[in-house]
Design a protein around this nucleic acid. Structure first.
Lengths: 131, 131
DNA sequence: TACTTTTATTTGCAGACGCAAGCATTGCTT
DNA sequence: AAGCAATGCTTGCGTCTGCAAATAAAAGTA
């Protein structure tokens, strides 16, 4: 007896919201990163050559192209330097975004926080005591 | 062998994003409703007496109090009339939001769309063929 | 009762997002 | 090669959101 479709959705929704809020807050507090920014860093790090076209990056991060443009611009800015952009040499319309060493360092630290947060949320004895 | 914590999160995230986008788009197109608005209507309808305090409504919808205030104000507006607000008689700080008959009708129709969308997404033979 | 503290909601403000329009570059057709 | 369509990214603009400050009312305290 699988539950109603909408009930299944509500369950998924609640679970996502609680995790999402926890991660967003933890990343924001400890690393001054948003969840979207973390997704982008992680997506780039996951690729063997550490770079992606804007379009696929947007897709992987679950963002619109315009949001991706601006997010990458933010993380590329002088006082940030986690990402770098360069034109695709073969197709000068395309833009590659790559993660910098600073970005990799930042991601590694943030990943710690993510795992701890998920651990606290999912792997703890006093499960669901946080209401 | 349960997967890595972060992998589990990514799975949840992807699943939520695909469903969320689909629902948001379907509701927006067919009913001029956002997913947040749908959550609020559904939360009110679910309660036996069809009304809630702002705080608990915010909590149920997964929104901040300020976002809830404005969302309710929007759905209460003249050309909308899906919700109604009134002061709590015993505690004049509190505000009750109730769903109107128009709101119930709207919700019933929207719920159809939600179920169809989820059905298309989860209960179809050609699963995951939509990329 | 007067004063302080707490609670419930709303408003000011700035950030992030999506859509649609704009621009530049490539590909297709004749 | 010239003209037109398609592609890839960026910018303009309006909306939704959260945080923090403001407001209003209740509760606690002297």
């Amino acid at each position: 007896m699988t539950p109603d479709l909408e009930t299944r959705w509500q369950t998924l929704d609640h679970e996502w919201q609680s995790a999402s809020r926890a991660l967003e807050h933890a990343l924001n507090t400890h690393h001054d990163l948003s969840l979207s920014e973390y997704r982008v860093l992680a997506a780039l790090e996951a690729k063997h050559d550490h770079h992606h076209r804007m379009q696929v990056l947007a897709d992987l991060a679950g963002l619109s192209q315009s949001a991706t443009t601006r997010l990458v611009a933010r993380l590329e800015a002088q006082d940030c330097g986690l990402l770098a952009r360069y034109m695709c040499p073969t197709d000068r319309r395309g833009v590659y975004t790559e993660i910098t060493p600073a970005g990799l360092t930042k991601l590694a630290r943030a990943r710690q926080t993510v795992q701890e947060t998920l651990h606290d949320l999912w792997d703890t004895e006093n499960q669901d005591l946080k209401k």
